[in-house]
């Protein structure tokens, strides 16, 4: 029986300790991405083939005071994912649990996931030629479900979070908490909203959800996330039509070859016209 799970980042509680990034590196056995200091508190500008999650930090001056906005950025595990639609070898799959998983053996490193992701998450590793991204610790999550939602098998980032800002559980439970927290935040923040909780857009929400005090764009997220429009043209129209066209050419030529062989036709003119 499939249980839909979800992760919820309650950004108001986040202290940007980056323990989640470190826990991710440990569980995934990923080396450090050495980044230069460029006057910013944010350690990694973007995800990479060696960094699957990071904390975005944004400073805003409000009434002569610095306001910090944090966001745990990673794969959103979209309900309908551009990477899954774009992948030609089905290496990327939307699992029943809601996780967008990645089968390294099927991956050929073509990078179609990179360009079709709504959020620019996957990165093809230059050396291994394989795509990389967060898989929500799919191995741990299997055990989490098997063992009756045992905390110790939560994704490593959620398990390690010291501020209880990263919550993990069934999607149903996370949606409930998200909406409760939204009601609380609304009193203080008029723009407060949930993200990826509602499924009324073309990506149909996601298993990585947020409760945000401000608009999504404040955190560098698209206010209205949507699938790349080229995807449906490509996959639903061009590719089927292309297959039909090439097939039709084969059939026409094969048909003509058969007719010409049987009837001895097509021999007017040329060297056979006598």
């Amino acid at each position: 029986m499939a249980v839909e799970i979800a992760m919820l980042h309650d950004v108001e509680k986040c202290s940007a300790c980056r323990g989640c990034s470190v826990a991710c590196k440990q569980w995934k056995n990923l080396p450090a991405d050495k980044t230069p200091f460029d006057g910013d508190y944010q350690s990694h500008k973007d995800l990479s083939s060696k960094t699957y999650t990071l904390i975005r930090m944004k400073e805003t001056m409000v009434d002569d005071k610095v306001r910090w906005d944090f966001l745990k950025f990673q794969c959103m595990h979209c309900g309908i994912a551009g990477c899954v639609l774009g992948c030609p070898t089905n290496a990327l799959q939307k699992e029943e649990t809601g996780i967008v998983s990645h089968d390294i053996d099927k991956c050929i490193g073509c990078g179609y996931c990179e360009i079709n992701c709504t959020f620019g998450v996957p990165h093809v590793d230059k050396e291994t030629k394989k795509s990389t991204k967060c898989n929500l610790c799919i191995d741990r999550v299997e055990k989490y479900i098997e063992n009756g939602y045992d905390r110790k098998y939560m994704p490593s980032c959620a398990k390690t979070c010291t501020a209880d800002a990263i919550l993990f559980g069934t999607r149903e439970e996370m949606v409930k908490i998200a909406n409760e927290r939204l009601a609380v935040l609304r009193e203080k923040y008029p723009d407060a909203c949930t993200y990826n909780v509602e499924t009324d857009n073309s990506i149909k929400g996601g298993a990585m959800m947020y409760v945000l005090p401000y608009k999504p764009s404040v955190y560098g997220l698209p206010d209205e996330p949507q699938l790349a429009p080229s995807l449906s043209v490509w996959k639903d129209k061009i590719q089927p039509a292309g297959k039909i066209l090439m097939g039709a050419a084969v059939v026409a030529v094969a048909g003509a070859a058969v007719v010409n062989t049987v009837t001895g036709g097509g021999k007017h003119g040329g060297d056979d016209h006598e």
Partner: peptide, 28 residues
């Protein structure tokens, strides 16, 4: 990507005809 795929499909259809006419079709 979709444009590259569409161009490929058209060109492959054309080349199939082109090859047949040059080596298979009795008159040409």
């Amino acid at each position: 990507y979709p444009v590259h795929d569409a161009g490929m499909a058209v060109m492959v259809a054309v080349i199939i005809g082109h090859i047949y006419l040059s080596v298979g079709h009795p008159a040409s």
